[in-house]
Structures are given as C-alpha cells and as structure tokens.
Design a protein around this nucleic acid. Structure first.
Length: 423
DNA sequence: TCTGGGGTCCTAGGACCC
DNA sequence: TCTGGGGTCCTAGGACCC
C-alpha cells in the first residue's frame, strides 16, 4: 500500500466576532457592523423593548476595529483600523463592543465539532485551525473534498456560523487557499497547481511575509509570489538573511513540511494596557503606579489560573511617539506572586528613560514552568516529595495585600528595601 | 480626531564557562 | 602576557500573526 499523500485543511471562521454578534442581534444582519472600541458601544435597551445601537460617529477614544462585517468592509473599513478613522468612512455603521467570553464559547463549539470528524487539530487562535486530513478515511479518494464539506456543515450545525476552508498538501498553501473564496469558501489545491493559482497572487499573501518584507520586496521589483519564485535563492539569502531568505524561496514554490501540532506549552504570559490619554512618569505618577500594580496583580492571577510561574519578568512601554521599549530581568527562582512581579518590574522600569509621555504599559512573565513541575524550597507539605529541577518562590501570604501604592516609603510592603521607585 | 492586546520566533552582542 | 572555539544564558529589539 502506498504511503498516503499529506492532506491538510486550514479552516478560518468568516468575520468571526461580527458573525457571533449577528447571532445575538439578528436585526443587524445586512448592515455595516463593526466590532471594537470600548464599553461605550454597549447597545441600550429601550423601554419599548427595542435596542438602540451605538454608531461609529458617536465614538471617541483610542480603540481599533477587531472585525467588520462584509457590508462594512465594502465601505473601506477593516480590522486594525482606528475606530475614529473608520468613523470618517462609515459614520452610520453600528459599533459593538468586543465580548471575548462569547467568542471563546463559540470557538470551543466549532473546534469541538471539527474534532468529532478529524481529531488532529492545531489551534491558531480563536477563529482558525489547521486540521490533518491525511489519515481520515476517504480523504485520499477525492483530495479531501467530501471531508471538507462535512467539516463546514458540522461547524454550521454547531454554531450557525460559516467558515472558509483550504485543503492542500501543506499548511502554507492551505492558509493561502482558505482566503481565496471567502466567505463560506472551499478551495482545494494540489502541488502542480501552484504556478497557475498561487504564483499570480501578491507576495504578502504568504503567511510570514508582512509589511516590512513586502515593502523591501517591492523595492527589489518583486510583487507576486511568482516573481519571488523566479528570484535566485542566493539573491534572497543575500537580501534577507540565511534563514528568512531561504524560507522565502521555499515558500514561493509552495513547499512546507511543517507538521500539524496539536499541543504546545505557552512561552510567555503578559498583560498590557493603553491609557485613555498619554501619561507622564512624574506628573501622573500615582495613576501610573496604580495601573502598574494592577497589571502585576492581573498577571499573577493569569499565571495562577493557568498553573504557571515565570522566571523572567519584563515590562513593555510605548511612548507617545509610538516607540516601544522593553526591559526584563531573570529572577533566582520562578514566581507567580504579584508582589515579587511588581518588585522585579519596578527594577526594570528604573532602567528606562521616562522623559517622554507613555501611551502603554505592559508586564510579562517568561521562562515559564508548570506549577506542577515546581517544588517549593521550604514547604512543610512537600517534605516527602522528590525535588524537581526548579524551585518556586513561596508566595508571601496573604499576597492580595495592597501593593506598594501610596507609600514610596522604604520597607513598607516590601520584603527587600525598596529604594527609589520611578512611580 | 491615526494605530488594541496577546502571543511567537529570530537576531545579535556580551558574559561566562569549558 | 597570546590565541582559539563552542555552548548557553541573559537582554533588547524587531517582524509578524490573530
């Protein structure tokens, strides 16, 4: 029996957030609707039972659009665009706030429906997945056409939502193909169709070729995937570096051997926030201090809930000129304790020039270890257990104490003397 | 009226060790 | 009193993705 040819599907939900909202507000079907902004966009319920929706024109703030219905996209509105800018294009479009809990619920529903048919699924975020079809009975007979249709039907039955699917011999091509016939599309492609169907597409359709690379390619006279494929591999390596250049060459020929990966451990967990207005380290010291502390508490909560501790604690700042600066430090032991995180993040902050006003502040935990793999250095409850390779810093109890705030006084709420604290 | 929040991976230099 | 090379860790920045 010959080895089966690889067959991989990429499934992408159509305008996912917006489509979920339309299930809740069916009266909006057919209208330009945009998801994004802040809490102000919550629909108000009128006494007569009707709903009053926020319009794009009413919005004031720094939010961006996460998703737009196809009707809104027709007006030039797309995700990533500032809501204010979108309001100029489509002032009467309806604006709804994001509701991640609801999207996560639907995400689980559609992924579970897919796994019933094809269990080997790789998560690529809330609204897309890769699916290994190679060993699904019958898939080889028609290059996955029937299974793909079955998947689409199952997703619709489970959620009421449509999706688009690409089925090809690898992830790279499937990702490109799922986008070719949106919405509600199904595109099959074999290797020998790469020259006719893939090469005419813009180079940026390749997942991994972003704005910078696209711009550089254009400057070199390369616009389509075909032109990229025609370029000498050595030339691409000279221009883009050994790894990226070689990868570009392979990708342009539709070659990609990456497997479908059903599980991977998280590498980092972070929290960040953009302020309503830019804040200054000195003039807005107390506001910033409170936000900083809050981020650390939220991060500690995330770590605890997910069952991880971090050894590297880092901060991220975005200044009013949009420049980003990061600082991090590695601790002697893993931690999930808010106060320890806050202290380390405070140390990182001291190494940053805070002349400019800040737009964003973030806190990150990296070099993660599973809590279950950690052993406390001194813990009466662990006495009999064999020690593992990591040590975890014991959370001081109770560790929900107010952190650092008001006082900058040395020693207050600190385990080690706190010296100067920028805010 | 510009530009969110959560991630991954890569590069590159310096420290430090063998 | 000079000359190495390799490996790993740490830190900072940047491109890219959903």
């Amino acid at each position: 029996m010959p080895t089966p040819r690889r067959l991989i599907a990429h499934l992408d939900m159509d305008a996912f957030y917006a489509s979920v909202e339309l299930l809740r507000y069916p009266d909006l079907k057919g209208q330009p609707v945009v998801i994004g902004g802040g809490r102000d966009a919550q629909p108000r319920h009128m006494p007569d039972g009707a709903r009053r929706y926020a319009k794009l024109r009413d919005y004031a703030g720094r939010g961006v659009i996460t998703t737009a219905t196809y009707e809104a996209r027709a007006l030039g509105v797309h995700s990533g665009m500032g809501v204010m800018k979108a309001a100029l294009l489509a002032p009467d479009a309806v604006l709804l706030p994001v509701d991640f809990d609801e999207y996560r619920r639907y995400s689980k529903l559609f992924k579970a429906a897919v796994r019933q048919i094809a269990p080997l699924v790789e998560d690529r975020g809330i609204d897309e997945i890769y699916i290994a079809l190679t060993d699904i009975p019958g898939a080889q007979d028609d290059a996955g056409a029937a299974i793909a249709q079955e998947l689409k039907d199952a997703v619709r039955n489970a959620t009421g939502l449509s999706c688009s699917i690409g089925v090809t011999p690898n992830k790279l091509l499937s990702k490109i193909c799922s986008d070719l016939d949106k919405p509600d599309g199904l595109t099959l492609l074999s290797e020998d169709e790469v020259p006719t169907r893939i090469w005419p597409l813009p180079a940026k359709k390749i997942n991994g070729i972003g704005p910078k690379a696209t711009e550089k390619l254009a400057a070199l006279g390369i616009h389509t995937i075909g032109e990229l494929a025609a370029a000498d591999a050595a030339f691409l390596v000279a221009q883009f570096g050994k790894s990226y250049g070689a990868w570009m060459h392979e990708a342009s020929h539709g070659r990609d051997e990456r497997p479908v990966v059903t599980y991977s451990e998280p590498k980092s967990i972070s929290r960040e926030t953009t302020f309503d207005r830019d804040l200054h380290a000195v003039r807005d010291k107390s506001t910033l201090g409170a936000i900083f502390t809050e981020l650390c508490i939220e991060l500690a909560g995330d770590l605890a809930r997910k069952g991880y501790a971090g050894k590297t604690i880092g901060i991220k700042l975005r200044f009013d000129d949009f420049k980003i600066v990061t600082r991090d430090m590695t601790l002697p032991a893993h931690t999930m304790d808010a106060r320890t995180i806050r202290r380390a993040a405070g140390e990182c902050l001291k190494r940053v020039d805070l002349t400019r006003r800040l737009r964003l502040l973030g806190v990150r935990a990296g070099t993660l270890a599973k809590l279950s793999d950690l052993v406390a250095p001194i813990s009466p409850y662990m006495a009999g257990d064999a020690p593992t390779k990591h040590a975890v810093q014991e959370p001081p109890s109770p560790y929900s104490l107010p952190l650092f705030d008001a006082p900058d006084k040395p020693g207050v709420n600190c385990q080690v003397p706190c010296v100067h604290r920028p805010f």
